[in-house]
Amino acid sequence: MTSTTQPPEAPEHPQPALPPRLLRQVMAGYPTGIAVVAAVVQGRVVGLSANSFTSVSLDPPLVSVSFAKTSTTWPQLRTAPRWGISLLAETGDDTLSALRRPSRTRFEGLEVTTDGQAAHLGDSLARLTVELVDEVDAGDHVLTLLRVLELERDEEQLPLVFFDSRTHRLAR
């Protein structure tokens, strides 16, 4: 990690705060894929699902993920030098259900492969191995900037899509 960036200073004439519920409702109308960020920490796989995953730069290869500051998994992930990011395929509903379990049992029964400390789910649309470059304080979240070290994609699979607070599949 190279530095920690501070949030921009508040404007002279701040705008009234938007209700978080309204922002959540509006953003639910924007479809995303579902990423699972995982690493081996102190001998066990820790991780969580995230729909805040996005590509940032092709050269150098960078992606980002946001973590809620209230997350108990984020501080553990932060200690690992490398993370795995698995993009869920359309068959990933059961995986997503498992990831809603308490952190200690979250990965039980799931096919997980590890490469050093990066952990990936076996039946994923794509797998990336990343390392933390920077963190940005972003309100109630921490935005992470991640360097992509390795990646692969199964072009035969379609993604599991998160839209309107539910999962969906693309039409073939």
Rank of each mutant, 00 (worst) to 15 (best):
M1R: 06
L149Y: 05
G109P: 03
P61F: 03
F162Q: 12
G139V: 02
R172C: 09
G109S: 01
L96T: 10
I85P: 15
G47E: 01
E156T: 10
S124H: 10
P60R: 09
D59V: 00
E131A: 09
P11F: 08
G84E: 01
P14H: 10
M27S: 14
E111M: 10
T105V: 11
D154N: 08
W74Y: 15
M27R: 08
H168D: 12
L18S: 05
L128I: 01
P16V: 00
R100W: 06
I34Y: 07
R127L: 08
S57T: 00
T70K: 08
E90L: 07
D123K: 08
P31L: 11
D115L: 06
L77D: 05
A119K: 14
L125H: 09
P60T: 00
E156Q: 04
R166A: 13
W83L: 14
A39C: 09
A119Q: 06
V142C: 14
T144I: 10
V41Q: 02
P159E: 13
Q117D: 11
T72W: 11
R169H: 14
G92A: 09
A126F: 05
P31G: 08
V133Y: 05
A119V: 08
A50P: 09
Q76H: 05
Y30C: 15
G33L: 09
L149D: 06
L87K: 02
S66G: 03
L88M: 10
F53A: 01
F53Y: 09
L96G: 10
G43D: 14
P75T: 07
S57F: 07
K69C: 14
L58G: 07
T105I: 07
L149M: 09
E9S: 12
V36H: 06
V63K: 00
K69H: 12
H120R: 15
R24C: 12
L170I: 04
D115G: 06
G139M: 12
L170R: 15
Q157E: 05
T79G: 01
A126R: 06
G122K: 13
V112W: 07
S86P: 14
P19S: 02
G47P: 07
V130H: 03
S86W: 10
P102C: 03
N51E: 01
H13N: 15
A126N: 03
T95I: 09
W83I: 13
P8Y: 04
T113G: 12
M1P: 02
V133C: 04
G29W: 00
E156P: 00
V161I: 04
R106I: 01
D137L: 03
S103P: 12
T113P: 12
P11R: 09
